[in-house]
Simulated assay, not measured.
Amino acid sequence: MIKTLLVLSLFFCILQSHSQKLVSKSNGTILNSENQQISPDQVRELLKNNQKLLADYNAGRSKKTVGNVLLIGGLGLMAIDVVIGANTDGNTTVTGNSIQTERNYPSALTFVGLAALAVAIPVKIGFSKKIKNVVNEYNYQSTLGYNALNNSKLDLITNANGIGLRLSLN
């Protein structure tokens, strides 16, 4: 009896370990069950059977790209404006016997850069939530056995002659 229970528990552990669990990190990287990073192409290959999850993952990756462009572009515009402001003397106006110098810093580049930074923050927050939702949904579906290619069913059968397992592949 103990030997049978041990074999059954080992069999169920093997089935559970076969379902691949994914883990999402805050920067959008996805790790497999062995904590190895999975490339975006490999993730797309895993999600190819579920078009909704694949579309959500692709939208999340697009948001990450847009957020990075806005973040780096905003910081770049502000840095360019600082360099320009530091290297120019400004406008000098001579009126009568007084000389006035106007600084042109901060200019429109700084304000455009700040606006890009302000837009980048919610975009970058949104992409990580979208990718985490995709990973959670994939893990939920893989543990329940909703994979399109693997519709198997395992039943425990008992009768007067003993206990058995029935594996049905659809």
Rank of each mutant, 00 (worst) to 15 (best):
T110S: 12
T65M: 03
S62P: 01
G90S: 06
N58T: 06
G76M: 07
R61W: 02
L71Y: 08
M78C: 07
N161F: 00
L5G: 14
L22C: 04
I163S: 11
G76R: 11
T101G: 03
V94F: 02
G113S: 04
Q20E: 15
F127S: 09
V83I: 15
A86V: 01
V135F: 02
G67N: 05
G73S: 09
V83D: 05
L47Q: 10
D155Y: 14
A118K: 06
M1C: 09
P106M: 02
M78N: 04
L169H: 06
S17P: 03
Q36F: 08
L47V: 09
N139Y: 01
F127D: 11
L15F: 10
V83Q: 06
K124T: 09
S62K: 14
L165C: 03
I2P: 03
G145V: 01
K130H: 01
A59L: 07
T4P: 05
K63H: 04
V66I: 12
V82K: 13
S9W: 01
Q141W: 00
G67P: 11
S107G: 15
S152E: 09
K3D: 15
G126H: 02
N161V: 00
Q100H: 11
K132Y: 00
F127P: 08
G96W: 04
K25N: 09
Y146D: 13
T65Y: 02
N139I: 00
L53E: 12
Q42D: 15
G60P: 12
V112F: 09
L167Q: 08
